[in-house]
Design a protein around this nucleic acid. Structure first.
Lengths: 219, 219
DNA sequence: TGTACATCAGTGAACGCGCGTTCACTGATGTAC
DNA sequence: TGTACATCAGTGAACGCGCGTTCACTGATGTAC
């Protein structure tokens, strides 16, 4: 919702509009840019109207964070979907080798989507993973993508598939998401804020693939 | 410098006092907590006095960031120093195998110190690696430890030692710091802000060692 | 189908806050003679 | 060694800003009769 004049007295879906405005702010400037007054301004509403829908600025920020995580989950799912056709054309069950290769490809797709999202939407990425005073809030549908899984769960599912396909020893499975996530998350941070900021998209992709290879190798 | 009354009209070393106050603020609350007015308050000085030493709040923050990086470098050097006695008692030049093991131990020490610092001083850690609008500023002595190397250079030196000791193929050396740094930096982030926040120090150490092992394995 | 009324989403005005920064100043220090 | 003076570190007062949040309100909507 932009600040174009409303025709009705009631807004319609102010909660949604505030989250959308918050997303736009986060996209442009990260979590600190999610300012309650500016969000209401963009929704074409008086500042305190936000309090009908959020208890505080912090509550709005949490909702925006969840939306950012959900956007990341959707990006991962899209990358995974690009694998489907190849899997289908390879024949239904596939050989053991084919299944293992596909499982590995799924893990790479998750990592690649994560890195691409961080680089394409650094503001949303930083918002999604900003330090929070709020409770951990476990898993919730508003963080998830179309599949109902949030980013962390999508990674876990990819690792489970690898175990099922014999591409990862079951003994190595526990905690493996933390190893994989660490590597990819760290690179994302270095690329968007850190010493790797000046890399071109191509260079960042190359090193991203190397990090993912390291994870596959070292897991 | 605390807010205890000065005896002299001149402060003595206000620049230093402001950086120290800024470090205390960063330690407690990360980069956003480095507030110019509060730093001057703690230095026992009127707010605008800061402008004799820093062009702006941003300039103060940069100085604090450099000090935080320097503290990290010192922590790494201390961890490396703990390796020296073992190296010496093993005999001067050592066998090829011994040198390779020591080189690997140096890399682990760098990673371990990094993770420990992040967990012990999350505010300083977040300040050291916060997004900055300022120029990259390459390398500068105020980011460095006793050895004159900053954290990134210490990591590079450890990797160089591994190559020299035959513990890392020269072909794998270029860009290796980014792979190693990514993994460890990502875990640090997950542990201080992210989903691994609730881990005990022991659990975090364990997973830290697994990440470091993954790096050694996958490099 | 028509009317009275309760609900509650959004209004309007205001608050106190702490921030970064600018201005013209004062007075301790150290140097030139 | 003694004095005049330039320097410049810190003072005092003030500014405008945008923020989050609270208050008492108004008026559109949808429901009960």
């Amino acid at each position: 919702m932009t600040a174009t004049a409303r025709s009705t007295y009631r807004h319609g879906d102010l909660r949604r509009a505030l989250i959308d405005a918050g997303m736009a702010l986060a996209r442009a400037g990260g979590p600190d840019a999610v300012v309650l007054r500016e969000a209401t301004r963009r929704a074409g509403v008086v500042p305190n109207a936000a309090y009908r829908h959020f208890a505080s600025r912090e509550a709005l920020l949490q909702a925006v964070r969840a939306a950012a995580l959900s956007a990341l989950a959707v990006a991962m799912e899209s990358e995974l979907d690009r694998l489907r056709p190849a899997a289908v054309s390879a024949g239904r069950p596939g050989t053991k080798r084919q299944r293992a290769d596909l499982a590995r490809a799924r893990l790479r797709a998750v990592g690649t989507a994560y890195l691409r999202f961080a680089q394409a939407e650094p503001g949303l990425f930083r918002t999604a993973f900003a330090a929070t005073d709020a409770a951990p809030a476990a898993s919730a549908p508003d963080k998830a993508g179309r599949s109902g899984l949030d980013p962390f769960q999508l990674l876990g599912a990819a690792l489970d598939t690898m175990v099922a396909a014999g591409a990862l020893a079951p003994a190595r499975r526990p905690g493996a998401e933390y190893l994989a996530w660490s590597a990819v998350h760290g690179l994302a941070m270095l690329v968007i804020d850190g010493p790797l900021r000046r890399l071109t998209r191509r260079q960042a992709n190359d090193i991203g693939q190397r990090v993912i290879a390291m994870v596959e190798q070292g897991l």
